[in-house]
Design a protein around this nucleic acid. Structure first.
Length: 305
DNA sequence: AAGACGAAAGTGGTTGA
DNA sequence: TCAACAACTTTCGTCTT
């Protein structure tokens, strides 16, 4: 179920599985063998059709009563200058009380900031681990997030959304982009929300990332397809040429990478079906077909071998 | 039977008035 | 804010291997 991971059913040898949410099992599509049990379900079991419903149904995240982070359980220094008997406190003691109050208020703010950061970083850890991302990406994402906190960009936004956005940005910066869909699969927030958060983050931190190149997807998709280095190199070569001729602008990079890999697999004589290629790139066969037709036609590639 | 192909209608996101 | 638009998807029938 994860990209880049080849799982084979020990019973029938099929590589196609189906994930049963309600049972938390990964089941072989062909013979029904349970490959893996007790998978933690990352998604909610309900569906929400608008943000309002989502907020009402979600049981994760801070409820409104937790706006005061300690549910009011912590000791509070009363604002009145009275002792427990109700007598006025005067002079030195009154000044001392005032100082204490100030310190307490400062600490509470600090506490909340620390806790938010700790939560954000643990969430980042979880996602990066599940997505099998290298350390440097995780660290880059953490850096971006801290930067965002310092510039006060987090206020009023969901921590999860911003963490996901930071991760998305970090992947791109490190040259191993993931699609919004891929990030969303491991995030608690929707693809849409991540996209919004990303745009906000990108603007706030002036990231100015160039659009992702299809070439950056070739290695990952190629590995998932089990093609040789030669085929991957050919695919990149094809894409280089395509980019140079400007026939890639406006097209989805994943579809292009998929199409290039498909053509390359034909040329290099280790043919993969359109279906296989489409699957690893998370696009449809139709898209692979359209892009590949275009590539062959515009670049005059001889695939007829 | 599986893969490739292409037409047609639908979806979600961007852009420009 | 709305409508036009391009890319992409879904669906389905047909042809090829």
């Amino acid at each position: 179920m994860f990209l880049g991971e080849r799982r084979v059913c020990p019973v029938c040898g099929s590589t196609e599985f189906f994930y049963d949410r309600s049972r938390g099992e990964l089941v072989c599509k062909k013979c029904g063998y349970v490959i893996e049990e007790n998978i933690i379900d990352e998604g909610p079991e309900w569906r929400a059709f608008d943000p309002d419903q989502r907020a009402k149904r979600a049981r994760t995240g801070a409820p409104m009563t937790l706006m005061i982070h300690d549910k009011g359980l912590s000791t509070d220094i009363d604002w009145r200058d009275k002792d427990i008997h109700g007598n006025q406190i005067r002079g030195m003691y009154r000044a001392k009380m005032r100082r204490l109050r100030m310190w307490q208020r400062r600490m509470r703010i600090n506490d909340a900031a620390e806790r938010n950061l700790a939560f954000a970083l643990s969430e980042l850890d979880r996602m990066a681990a599940q997505m099998m991302l290298p350390r440097r990406v995780k660290e880059e994402a953490a850096r971006l997030y801290r930067e965002a906190v310092m510039r006060k960009l987090i206020r009023g936004r969901s921590i999860e959304g911003m963490v996901s956005a930071a991760l998305y940005a970090a992947c791109r910066m490190e040259g191993i982009p993931r699609t919004l869909d891929e990030i969303a699969r491991f995030s608690k927030v929707s693809k849409k929300e991540i996209g919004r958060s990303y745009r906000f983050l990108s603007r706030g931190l002036k990231l100015n990332l160039k659009p992702t190149s299809p070439i950056d997807y070739v290695d990952r998709f190629g590995d998932a397809l089990n093609v040789t280095q030669k085929t991957k190199a050919k695919a990149k070569e094809i894409l280089q040429e395509a980019i140079k001729r400007g026939i890639t602008s406006g097209k989805g990079p994943t579809g292009l990478a998929a199409a290039a890999l498909y053509v390359a697999s034909l040329i290099e004589g280790e043919k993969k079906t359109q279906r296989e290629v489409a699957e690893v790139a998370h696009v449809t066969e139709v898209t692979v077909r359209n892009r590949y037709k275009e590539l062959v036609e515009k670049l005059k590639l001889n695939v007829s071998i």
